[in-house]
Amino acid sequence: MAKNIESPQSFEASIERLNEIIRELEAGNIPLDDTLKIFEEGIRLTDACRKQLAEAEDKVKTLISTHQGFEEKPGV
């Protein structure tokens, strides 16, 4: 599986948490400071998710196997 720091699981988990946050905020029965905390968490999550959707810079790489192991070279 992917060894990215931000794994696909965390993206999906973030989306799930965001939906939960919306529900909590819209229910509106939380004290102000908790509301603000949840809001902040939501903003942080949407930002983290956006980061995961940021355009890849070296989009295409080629896997080369060498004597030492594997190597990635940019492009095809």
Binding site: I15, L18, N19, I21, I22, L25, E26, G28, T35, L36, F39, G42, I43, T46, C49, R50, L53
Partner: peptide, 17 residues
């Protein structure tokens, strides 16, 4: 699709806050 859904989520949170 994902970006749109994130934007919508954020707008929703913004309105509530």
């Amino acid at each position: 699709d994902w970006l749109q859904s994130l934007d919508e989520t954020e707008s929703q949170m913004g309105v509530v806050i």
